[in-house]
Simulated scan of single mutants.
Amino acid sequence: MFFGSFEDSQKIEYVTSLSAISGLMLTHIRKAMNIAQADMGKLFNMSHATYRSIEKGETAINADFIFMLCGIIEKKFSFYFELLEDIANHLTSVEKDPFNNECIVNLIPNGDFQKLLNNMSSDDFAIAPSIDKINILIDQDMYLFLSPELKLRMLQLTDKVIMKDQVKEIIKITSDEVEDVVQALKKSELDTNGLNSVNHAGTLSSASAIALYSTLLSPIGLPVVAGLGLYKAYKKSKENKKK
């Protein structure tokens, strides 16, 4: 974390990682969806601590998780990773930090970044731009480094808001109920009002399936079905482990 300004002839060095960048993106997605960290974790059978560590960049993000999430938020898998790459390229090319200090941002491997976070005490980290302590770039500190264009693309990660009662139902969804949603999507005929106006009576019988289906906003052209198909398999594997 940092604040204030720093005047020195030497460049200030910051370090970050792809996991930290992805964590920032996930934070923006989750907040746009109006979902708490604990509930976001429950959607994917993760503990609150595990999901929180992903947002902080302490845990590398699994590609399966991103693919499933992209299915739910109705974004192309490629959109997520193109933005991740563009943010990484931007950060490593900046020459001045948000406080006009000359700087350099180094991208280090996720494993090294996680060790750095886990093995160092709070005394080792800078609370302001510093040349003699490690300046870790995570969370909203990183956001300050982004260009207006990248900030706009962050906002475009999702325009979906999920109501609390929907979240509670989706958390309880089973693999069979996810499959019911997939089949309903395949049979849906879009009208001018979109998916939410399609009558799925008789196709979806559970509150959890209806809650997930009702969050969908966009035409099926987006890779919703593929992402939900993986989500179904993920739920199935978790169910099998409980047996």
Rank of each mutant, 00 (worst) to 15 (best):
A38K: 13
E85R: 11
E95H: 03
A63E: 11
I73D: 05
S78D: 11
H90E: 09
L69M: 15
D64R: 11
I66A: 04
M33K: 11
A60N: 05
E85Y: 08
Q37I: 07
E95L: 14
D39R: 10
G71N: 07
A60I: 06
H48P: 01
H90P: 06
V94L: 04
Q37T: 03
L69E: 08
A32L: 10
F77I: 01
Q37S: 10
I61N: 03
S93A: 13
F65I: 02
L26K: 00
C70I: 01
G57C: 07
N45L: 12
T27P: 00
I29H: 02
R52E: 08
K31L: 13
K31E: 15
L84W: 08
K42C: 07
E74D: 10
C70F: 12
M68W: 09
I87Y: 14
M46W: 08
G41N: 15
I29P: 00
S93K: 09
K31V: 10
I72P: 00
I35L: 10
K76N: 14
R52D: 01
S78Q: 12
I54P: 01
D86P: 00
A63N: 11
S47A: 02
Y51T: 00
I87A: 05
Y51D: 01
K56P: 03
K56Q: 14
T50M: 12
N89V: 15
E58W: 06
Y51L: 02
S53D: 07
C70L: 13
N45Q: 11
S78I: 11
C70K: 10
Q37V: 11
G71T: 05
F67V: 07
E82F: 05
M25I: 05
L43Q: 09
L91H: 06
M33I: 14
T27F: 14
